[in-house]
């Protein structure tokens, strides 16, 4: 008599990646929350200055960067589905595509900074631009760190590290990248739109 296969539904409540990475992400989100609340309070105290400052920002550049980061995050999410299916090479190609969109983000952000510098606007111009440069540059540093992490998991995937469903390292890297995206979707309307 053959032993019939039994499908067991394991509890699906599994936190992707490493617990340590989620605590790190929480810490990062908390720091940015303080920045965002500080920016909002400063705007209420200096409404005219902030209104003029926002008018000097390039909204289309902000939108391009939003689309670049969201699209980058999308490719990272798809890369994870490929790793789940043990299609590592395809995952690497998707990660490289994600990094290409991140490079678009960085290029536009540098262009924005240079355009402001050409107008004589610096971090010392006023409170609005102090906060603008601090918050966006801090976020840019996270994008750069995220790119390093994506490069690391792409390298590891290419060399066959994520096999037999041992993909927590890959998931941790992708979660960090989505955090960068999550922060930008708050930062963008706060600084550029409202």
């Amino acid at each position: 008599m053959t032993n019939p296969s039994i499908a067991i539904e394991l509890p699906d409540k599994k936190l992707p990646g490493d617990l340590a990475m989620w605590f790190f992400i929480l810490a990062e989100l908390t720091v940015f929350a303080i920045f965002f609340i500080g920016f909002s309070v400063s705007e209420q105290l200096n409404a005219e200055m902030f209104s003029q400052g926002k008018a000097q920002l390039h909204q289309t550049a902000g939108l391009i960067n939003t689309i670049a980061l969201i699209t980058s995050s999308f490719f990272v999410a798809i890369a994870l589905t490929k790793i789940h299916k043990a299609q590592a090479k395809q995952a690497v190609l998707l990660l490289l595509t994600a990094k290409a969109f991140a490079i678009i983000y960085i290029s536009v952000k540098i262009w924005e900074y240079l355009s402001l510098f050409e107008q004589g606007i610096t971090i010392e111009t006023n409170t609005f631009f102090t906060l603008y440069f601090l918050i966006t540059a801090f976020h840019l540093m996270h994008v750069l760190l995220g790119m390093v992490i994506l490069a690391f998991i792409a390298y590891s995937a290419w060399h066959g590290k994520y096999q037999n469903n041992e993909i927590s390292g890959f998931e941790a890297g992708t979660s960090y990248w989505h955090m960068v995206d999550l922060l930008w979707i708050i930062l963008f309307p706060l600084i550029y739109v409202i």
């Binding site: 296969s5 067991i8 539904e9 394991l10």
Partner: peptide, 22 residues
């Protein structure tokens, strides 16, 4: 786990859901 059992734990995001979100 008994021999012959199948572990089913694949509730991950699929491409269609990710595309809709994007």
């Amino acid at each position: 786990m008994r021999k012959g059992n199948v572990v089913k734990n694949n509730k991950t995001v699929n491409m269609a859901a990710a595309t809709k979100s994007w």
